[in-house]
Write a protein that binds this DNA or RNA. Structure first.
Lengths: 144, 144
DNA sequence: CGGACCGGTTGCAGAATACAACGTCACGAT
DNA sequence: ATCGTGACGTTGTATTCTGCAACCGGTCCG
């Protein structure tokens, strides 16, 4: 077994390596939906809609960046803004039917790619890997 | 236990979420060394020097992008180019002393951040998490 | 009412990136 | 030996992403 420090260094290195390639890999998989757009749409689907500020906080992006991404996705017809009647400052963002379809299409491509890469993993290992990632990311959400 | 498909979907989602945040997180941790620069320097350290083309292939970036990143890092004094006497087309890229120091500094910051996030993990879980990531990335290197 | 704050947009600048065209060099076929 | 092909790297150009700052409209509290 590796020492604790070796394990941490390895985790850091491998997560970083993955991050470095994710954008380009996503671009090749579905050229019409960047990694950012894809993750924003996914988040909207998971959350059943949310505010732009929530997206900015979750992905550590500036609100102006989110605003522009949102505008682009709206122009493409993938999302719609619903004004909150109680507070006119707030826009609830939601997927349109077209957005849901586009997301499903891209997600299916990604799902296939991931399945291929994980094809020879034992179910138990998959399960544990998923659990570790969840655990790691739940920690990361608040802080650095 | 989750189904195989659920596990894969979770792994995909969580890895992607991590990737989306990595750049901003790295920028906040060490503002003077972007995630790209950091990974390039790390690669040079691991490989004891390599060619620009190797970096481009490994990180799925265009050679022009690498060329500019390399130029910037050279200007900062972090790397040096050693012309191959046998083949004048080739430049072997290597870390300078300053580059090694800067990399160590940034790596230490990152190492601390990762240690904090992983502080309450059991050694066995850390070990397995590291192993899973290695296994996943070794698959990914060639393909998408 | 008035100031502080929140959610979002826009102007601006900088960085990263891809694609294409190019220069230089090496190597193999003729 | 020479010419074509391809490899390695650089540069020009355009696009996209991003952050910061300034701003607008709306809300809430004193």
């Amino acid at each position: 077994m590796l020492s604790r420090d070796q394990s941490v260094v390895t985790i850091q290195r491998e997560l970083t390596a993955f991050a470095r390639r994710a954008r380009a890999a996503a671009a090749r998989m579905h050229p019409e939906l960047s990694l950012v757009s894809f993750t924003l749409l996914s988040h909207l689907e998971d959350q059943q809609g949310c505010r732009a500020t929530d997206l900015a906080a979750y992905y550590m992006l500036d609100k102006s960046t989110i605003s522009r991404q949102i505008a682009a996705l709206e122009k493409l017809g993938f999302i719609e803004r619903i004004s909150d009647p109680d507070d006119h400052r707030i826009q609830l963002l939601q997927l349109t039917a077209a957005g849901t379809a586009k997301l499903a299409e891209a997600a299916e491509l990604r799902r296939q790619a991931f399945h291929e890469r994980l094809a020879d993993w034992a179910p138990q290992d998959l399960d544990r890997f998923a659990e570790y990632l969840l655990r790691y990311n739940s920690r990361a959400e608040g802080g650095s």
